[in-house]
Design a protein around this nucleic acid. Structure first.
Lengths: 329, 329
DNA sequence: TTGTAAGCGTTATCAT
DNA sequence: ATGATAACGCTTACAA
């Protein structure tokens, strides 16, 4: 591979000048610029990005940490983030934290050790304190889908409470008064927020919380399966079910089919997230849209603005979910 | 951030010695090793990976190019590849090629410009010739899900022909004799291979190809929708449908529901890929499993062996698909 | 507008 | 077993 030195020799100019035409970092006379470009062409020169990084103290890489690379959710996030950065010549390093505090910390350290210019984090297990400390350490980062008071200015979130409210409100409006709720793990911020929204909607219709209609699932398909079985076994009376995510809603619908419960006639079901498969269920799932791509884009723009000093349009910190009415409720 | 120089000063040894204890690259007396480690500890030293890369001419990064980061397919692939490399301290840079030859080339160049030690490519549009040229250029890479004769030793594929065979054979065995087929774009290697398998199964049962029962879809949900409508409008007679991927199968099942065609009683459907949502359909989709994780792992190991000279267990180039019988056929 | 030269933080080759 | 010292390929003051 040719180096900048060979280019400068062939073009008959100095290293600095070649660097200038590469980076457009200072005016260069048109004629010399042409000479340099011709030389680069001839040698098939391509700058060594590692050397650039070392000298400029910028790696032009952004680390992304998500819970799971698989799953219907993070793909879209990554996709948007990648394209946003690719457009400006920066690259994305991915890592998975598997919802485990220790692994999340390790992954963050790993990404930092890679000299990422910034981090985009979707972490659920690491403590607020840890994130505050990370901020103090000087590593620029944004947190997605979690509000951390100590670093509020770096958080991009969905109004999960509103989402929970919308789901239940939709059911309430359609006349349901006995609504069972399948939550995600309550220690997860989004899960508890969504449930709060559910309660607020209930209250608005003068309905009280009914513990016998609450089930804490695991955000997996099986969570929905267990939940519905649980309610059925307990002979609970309810005409509708809100599930805190689409996986659990799918599980519940499967069980409904199995036990001959017609959806939505005998049991209305609403999910949450609007993941890519939510319209593959039968009936098609009514759910709350999680604007994951918009959030990914915003995270990328936060980085572009705060780390690379690029001008970006309006930054937005909290997104509003929307109910997507389909056939299941 | 502390540098190796400061560590060496504090420990009272030379740069070289510090480097040796960091990399375990030559014997160091236990006592001095301790001194160095203490110094590193005290300074909170962490090696600068960019400088390491420049000096050692290894970036410890692997570039992954897939068609779409979103979608149910690539997440699992990435997930496996990432964990495989993380375990040995290497990181993964992702890029999307969007099934477009120009974009695929650009992405490959982008990844190369990032000094990746190796590339793992899932490309469908770039020509065989281009890949041959890439091999000549010296960049190590593996190709996934595509057989390119000129670089056969770097290809890890699924036996798509066998998959197509299995799908149709399953139907044939259950007595179906009029089987419609919804293909992916026939210019894609996997699509045409799958169709070949279909024909082979047919032939085994002395059935001839019936052009009126063939429809070329787009591998998207709408492809399945259009296909079934097409067959129905044409008043074609068939009792079973094989779709060259699960998205199209989902689309077809949706239409079946809409027109009151019972699956599988009146129309048996089999898909292909066994993507994560294939058991969310109703009835649950019978499909052909694409062992994407195993393939990802193998690709990673290919790199580990050929680029990093690590000892790895048995490398395997072509994987056998398996029929997953569920409820739709 | 262009050139000189000092880093950037390591690894690696020789010596010793 | 350890130390000097020259790369690695580029950016960036500072001069000219």
């Amino acid at each position: 591979m040719a180096t900048i030195y060979e280019v400068s020799k062939l073009a008959g100019v100095s290293l600095a000048t070649v660097s200038r035409v590469i980076n457009n970092t200072a005016p260069v006379r048109a004629s010399t610029k042409e000479k340099v470009e011709a030389a680069m062409q001839e040698l098939g020169y391509r700058p060594n990005s590692v050397a650039q990084s070392l000298a400029s103290n910028r790696s032009n890489s952004i680390g992304i940490l998500v819970s799971e690379l698989g799953g219907p959710f993070y793909g879209e996030l990554l996709s948007r983030i990648e394209s946003e950065f690719r457009a400006v010549g920066k690259h994305v390093i991915v890592a998975a934290g598997h919802s485990d505090a220790e692994l999340e910390r390790e992954s963050i350290e790993f990404l930092r050790s890679r000299n990422c210019d910034a981090l985009i984090l979707h972490v659920e297990s690491v403590s607020d304190d840890y994130l505050r400390g990370l901020a103090d350490s000087g590593t620029p980062f944004v947190v997605i889908n979690r509000h951390v008071a100590a670093v509020a200015d770096r958080c991009i979130t969905l109004d999960n409470e509103l989402g929970g409210y919308l789901a239940t409100h939709h059911l309430l409006e359609r006349g349901h008064r006995s609504i069972a709720y399948v939550s995600g793990p309550m220690w997860k911020h989004d899960a508890s927020e969504r449930y709060k929204g559910h309660l607020r909607a209930l209250k608005e219709f003068s309905l009280a919380e009914d513990k016998s209609l609450f089930f804490e699932g695991d955000f997996q398909e099986t969570g929905g399966v267990h939940a519905l079985h649980h309610f059925l076994d307990a002979k609970a009376k309810f005409t509708a079910l809100v599930c805190a995510n689409d996986e659990m809603a799918s599980g519940a619908i499967t069980v409904a089919h199995e036990v001959g419960l017609e959806v939505p006639a005998e049991l209305a079901v609403v999910g949450f997230d609007n993941v890519n498969f939510s319209h593959y269920t039968y009936p098609k799932l009514t759910t709350v849209d999680y604007p994951i791509e918009a959030i990914g884009q915003m995270a990328a723009r936060w980085v572009l603005k705060h780390v690379y000093q690029q001008p970006v349009p309006d930054l937005k910190a909290v997104f509003q979910p929307q109910l997507i009415p389909r056939d299941s409720a």
